[in-house]
Lab assay of single mutants.
Amino acid sequence: MIINNLKLIREKKKISQSELAALLESSRQTINGIEKNKYNPSLQLALKIAYYLNTPLEDIFQWQ
């Protein structure tokens, strides 16, 4: 199971779900699903999230 700190990191950087979704060329619903652990992002999307949040991938997503 993958757990994530996306919501915590996103809020700390003062970025809304909609703003992050626009940067990622994704939907706000996708970001919401990832944050609620209802959806696991593809590797490509996970890497883009890490890039746009300027945060190491392993700080956002962790195996448990």
Rank of each mutant, 00 (worst) to 15 (best):
G33F: 13
Y51V: 07
D59P: 02
I60R: 00
S42G: 10
L24N: 00
I60Q: 01
Q17S: 05
N5Y: 08
K13N: 11
Y52L: 14
E11Q: 11
L43C: 14
I3T: 11
K48A: 10
K38I: 14
P41H: 02
T30S: 06
L45D: 04
P41W: 04
K12D: 09
I2S: 08
S42L: 04
E11I: 12
P41V: 10
E19L: 10
Y39E: 10
N32S: 13
N32Q: 15
I9R: 02
R28L: 14
I31V: 11
L20K: 00
I31L: 07
N4H: 03
Q62V: 13
Y39N: 07
Q64L: 06
Q62R: 11
S42P: 12
E58C: 13
N40L: 14
L43K: 10
K48N: 06
L45V: 06
Q62E: 09
R10I: 07
K48T: 05
I60S: 01
L47W: 07
L57A: 02
K13I: 09
M1R: 07
N40K: 14
S27N: 13
Q64F: 07
L6D: 03
Y39R: 11
N40A: 15
A50P: 00
L24K: 00
E11C: 11
K13A: 13
R10Q: 03
I3E: 08
N4I: 11
W63L: 04
L57K: 01
T30D: 05
K7V: 06
I31E: 01
K7F: 05
Q62K: 12
F61N: 00
Q17G: 03
K12F: 10
T55I: 07
L47A: 10
S42T: 12
L6R: 01
S42I: 04
T30P: 02
L8P: 08
Y51R: 09
A21S: 06
P56Q: 08
N4Y: 06
M1F: 08
I34R: 02
R28G: 07
S16Q: 05
K14G: 15
K48H: 05
R28Y: 11
Y51I: 07
T55W: 05
L24V: 15
L23P: 01
P56G: 06
A50D: 02
S26F: 08
P56A: 10
I9L: 10
L24R: 01
W63A: 03
L24W: 01
L8E: 15
L8R: 14
P56H: 06
A22N: 12
